[in-house]
């Protein structure tokens, strides 16, 4: 089954996916049945299909859940406190850090856009949501 491990069979790596978002070409993977998922992935977790195609990621999403984190993750000491959020973009949801708004002003259902920025603590890239 090594033919399934050739690079051109791989829809995208995680870093290639971040590159695409940074280039304004964010995408998700869609199965023929219309289910959404994220790379790196070879099998649709909903339908089991291996026929995954790239589709444009909607430009905005809505906050499903959020938390102001006071005891930060490893590599986030200079970022703390920060707001973790899970955002519903329709076919897929994404998890990252919400910037540009105070936690007290955030509500579930708020609309945000997706960017790729870096942490305050390190140069590691980070999925960031900002208010529209």
């Amino acid at each position: 089954m090594t033919e399934h491990l050739t690079p051109d069979e791989q829809p995208a790596t995680y870093d290639e996916w971040l590159d695409a978002i940074e280039a304004g070409e964010g995408f998700y993977l869609e199965s023929p049945e219309g289910h959404g998922s994220l790379p790196p992935r070879r099998v649709c977790p909903h339908s089991g299909s291996t026929e995954l195609t790239q589709q444009p990621l909607p430009e905005t999403g809505t906050i499903e859940a959020f938390s102001e984190v006071h005891v930060g993750a490893e590599g986030f000491s200079e970022d703390t406190p920060y707001i973790n959020a899970i955002v519903d973009f329709g076919p897929v949801s994404l998890t990252g850090v919400l910037r540009g708004v105070e936690a007290a002003d955030v509500s579930v259902g708020d609309e945000v856009r997706l960017t790729v920025e870096t942490r305050e603590t390190t140069d590691d890239r980070l999925l960031v949501f900002r208010p529209t």
């Binding site: 959020f66 938390s67 970022d79 973790n84 850090v97 942490r119 980070l126 999925l127």
Partner: peptide, 16 residues
């Protein structure tokens, strides 16, 4: 990589 900790994951569940 998105800064999720064990407590913040359960905090997100609590919010939901």
């Amino acid at each position: 990589r998105g800064g999720v900790t064990f407590p913040s994951a359960y905090a997100l569940m609590a919010r939901a």
